[in-house]
Amino acid sequence: MSPKSSIAKSADYHHGNLRNALIEAGRSALMDVSAQDLSLRYLARMVGVSEAAPSRHFAGIDELLATIAASGYRDLAALRVAIRDSEDTALSKAYRMMRVYVEFAQRHNGLFGLMIGPRIAAHQAYPELTDESNRSFGLFSDTIEALAIESGWSQADLKLVTHAAWSMEHGLATLILSNRAPRADTKVAIPKLIDFVLVTLLSAITAGPDHLQRVIQQCARAEEPVVARTARKRAKAS
Rank of each mutant, 00 (worst) to 15 (best):
I144S: 01
E128S: 15
M115A: 11
Y73H: 13
P127T: 00
G152V: 10
E145P: 01
Q155S: 15
S136D: 12
R96G: 01
T130W: 03
R119Y: 11
L129F: 15
A156L: 13
A82F: 04
L91T: 01
F140H: 13
E145Y: 10
R119C: 02
A156C: 03
L114N: 13
R96N: 10
L76G: 02
S92Y: 00
A125C: 02
T130M: 15
Y101D: 07
S154D: 15
K93C: 06
I149Y: 04
G72W: 12
S136I: 02
M98E: 08
R96D: 09
W153H: 11
D157T: 05
D75R: 09
V81A: 04
G138W: 07
H108P: 04
S151I: 00
E103W: 03
V81D: 13
E103Q: 15
G138Q: 12
G138C: 09
S133I: 05
I83Q: 01
L79R: 13
Y95F: 11
I149N: 05
R135C: 07
I116P: 00
D75Q: 12
I116W: 13
V81C: 04
G113L: 11
I149G: 02
Q155T: 09
S86K: 06
S136L: 02
S141H: 08
I149F: 04
A70V: 08
Y101G: 05
R74G: 06
S136F: 08
G152Y: 02
M98T: 07
A105M: 15
D157P: 00
G72I: 01
S154Y: 08
V100F: 00
Y73D: 05
D142W: 06
Q124A: 11
Q106P: 05
A105V: 10
S92R: 13
L147C: 06
A70Y: 08
M115T: 08
A70H: 07
D131E: 15
D75E: 14
F137H: 11
I120K: 06
A78L: 09
L139C: 07
F112A: 13
R119I: 14
G138F: 12
R84M: 08
A82G: 02
G138I: 05
N109A: 12
R119W: 07
E128I: 14
E150G: 05
